[in-house]
Design a protein around this nucleic acid. Structure first.
Lengths: 141, 141
DNA sequence: TGGGGTAACTTCCTGATGGGAAGTACGCAC
DNA sequence: GTGCGTACTTCCCATCAGGAAGTTACCCCA
């Protein structure tokens, strides 16, 4: 047949791209999204401050305040690359001073589903990890 | 009451730890697991070369070959920190030369569930991202 | 009319970090 | 005793992230 369904194309992509290969474009993409600021920005845009809300647009300054410790440079850089990859949209309104807000696209939302799990995992398993570190450090004195 | 169940403690941890805060330990943990080599190592140990198999132990050299482009330094460093955090176990058998193999713990397996999604996402949405980049770059000439 | 304020960057400098390559330890085989 | 294979470890350098200060554009208040 001449046409393929989305599911078929996706299944094919799975064998075409292999993120284990250094030269594969999907490896570079995986490197890009396996980044702490990407994870935090997507978490913020996807479920708000408490990580329990709905996806909603957020302003630059709001993100900057929420993601404690992010430098302006890194935030701008991260948002720019997410925009380029089609994961967020940037919209500036001509108020004074100019107001810029960022929002997840559908594609960004699909990645958010994955990333949200990471943040939740870190928070729920923190105690386990801490305990493991303690016993590891104690053993290797 | 004086005792708490594991589930209660976990629910409490969710509010105690907030990875958005720069000083929170879970933020540092999230930074640690939002790392390209962590993602790739966990993917490899969790589902083998094609990302379709079962979790199984892998040798240092096997990982090094599979994760094309990883330096020995980074692989050792990543494995060490995963071991410290209780996500993998390291077992050396006294053959000649010594054989070392790494295997996911239950904790590592639970993180693998999240991480596997990231790699799959990168591979299935590669084309979308590529298309977005093209139109973005074309628009900003 | 000019000084101050704010949002969203941008630039510069410097310290940290990742990659590459070379070195190490061990023990057997030749 | 020399060479090899595995699993590291160390050193050096290029790149990169963080911090702080500068930039633009416009309005408000005196």
């Amino acid at each position: 047949m001449a046409t393929t369904t989305a599911a078929q194309r996706r299944a094919q992509a799975k064998v075409e791209y292999d993120a284990f290969l250094a030269g594969c474009p999907s490896r570079k993409l995986l490197d890009r999204i396996s980044d702490k600021w990407v994870t935090l920005v997507l978490s913020a845009l996807g479920s708000g401050p408490g990580c329990v809300g709905e996806p909603r647009p957020m302003r630059y300054s709001e993100l900057s305040r929420l993601l404690a410790g992010v430098s302006q440079k890194m935030l701008t850089q991260t948002l720019r690359s997410l925009e380029r990859d089609g994961l967020v949209t940037r919209s500036a309104t001509a108020t004074v001073p100019v107001t810029v807000s960022y929002e997840l696209t559908d594609l960004g939302l699909s990645l958010h589903e994955m990333v949200r799990g990471l943040k939740a995992w870190a928070q729920t398993h923190m105690d386990d990890v801490l305990a493991n570190r303690e016993s590891f450090d104690a053993a290797s004195v």
